[in-house]
Computed example of a mutant assay.
Amino acid sequence: MRTSEIREAAAALLDAHRSGTPIPPLSMTYPSATIADAYRIQQEQVRFWTEAGDRVRGHKIGLVSAVIQRQMGVHEPDYGHLTASMFHPEHRPIPAGAFLQPRIEPEIAFVLGAPLRGPGVTVDDAGRAVRYLLPALEIVDSRIRDWKITIVDTIADNASSGAAILGSTPIDPAEVDLPSVSCALLRNGTVIETGTGAAVLGTPFNALAWLANAIGALGVSLEPGQVVLSGSITRAIAIAPGDSIMAEFPGIGRVTAMLAEDDPS
């Protein structure tokens, strides 16, 4: 894609954020767009947000499930940026108007205590760099109409990022066998989905190593204090105003998010 088209596509997504009106798939508007083009569109939006005063606080990893990869016709995950404005406190209502087509996923969040600079980062390197982990919920959202997305669409749309909600009790990763960690996702008190950490590329540490190497190829590193959402343990579920969502991780803890009927202010 030409630079002018990259900026045009980023502007369309930014306008969807502002207006609350989804746009047609970029993969249809720009049929020759590649994955590399999609990351350029993503970066253009991140540049806009940071120049407006937001800051990058970490990253999210998507497309970690083998089932989803087959569905999307891809063979590796993708990533997006988490800015400070995307984080919401646990137990406080989140305005539904911030989202267009929200879904929610349970994840294990890593908070880094040491830098990770790829390429060449191993799973052991990734584990040593984690200061602590937290239970997390990610609200994923799409600025693409009806979630009619290809890999190009979701990457361009910042990996369909929406919001992150972190639990409050840090856990030493050495105390947890991440592949066997179980998770129950509850909506309004009813279990909707279950899964284990092995759904995330065998272990969430694999996802973290993949991310460090993927962004390392671009000259970017993961830094101490940054948060990484390692990918969904279950299928994403749709949520609506008034819903209360809880993710329970035995041995790690639980985290709750509430989607407000109206703006709590």
Rank of each mutant, 00 (worst) to 15 (best):
M1R: 01
T3Y: 03
T3C: 00
S4V: 11
I6A: 05
R7I: 02
A9I: 06
A12M: 14
L13S: 02
T21P: 00
P22V: 00
M28N: 04
A36K: 11
A36T: 13
R40S: 12
Q42R: 12
Q45H: 00
V46R: 09
V46Y: 02
T50F: 05
T50L: 07
A52R: 08
G53R: 04
D54K: 01
R55S: 13
V56L: 14
R57Y: 01
G62V: 06
S65M: 07
V67N: 01
I68L: 15
Q71D: 06
M72E: 07
E76Q: 15
H81R: 14
L82N: 09
M86T: 06
H91I: 04
Q101S: 10
P102L: 02
E107P: 03
I108N: 07
F110G: 05
F110Q: 04
V111Y: 09
L112A: 04
P115H: 12
L116R: 11
G120I: 15
V121I: 15
T122W: 13
V123N: 11
D125S: 12
A126Y: 12
A129G: 07
L133F: 10
L133H: 09
L133V: 15
L137G: 10
I139C: 07
V140D: 01
R143L: 05
I144S: 02
R145P: 00
D146N: 13
K148N: 03
I149T: 08
T150Q: 04
I151A: 12
D153I: 02
A164G: 11
A164Y: 01
G167D: 07
A174W: 08
D177P: 08
S180A: 15
C183N: 00
N188Y: 10
G189V: 07
I192Y: 04
I192L: 13
E193D: 01
T194L: 03
G195D: 10
G195R: 11
A199I: 03
L201G: 06
P204T: 12
P204M: 12
L208R: 03
L208E: 02
A212F: 13
A217C: 10
S221I: 02
L222G: 12
L222N: 11
P224F: 08
V227L: 14
G231A: 10
G231D: 11
I233G: 00
T234Q: 08
R235K: 15
A236G: 14
A236M: 14
A236S: 15
A236L: 13
A240Y: 10
P241G: 13
S244V: 15
M246W: 00
M246D: 10
P250I: 05
T256N: 10
A257P: 05
A257F: 03
A260D: 07
E261W: 05
D263P: 04
P264F: 07
S265A: 09
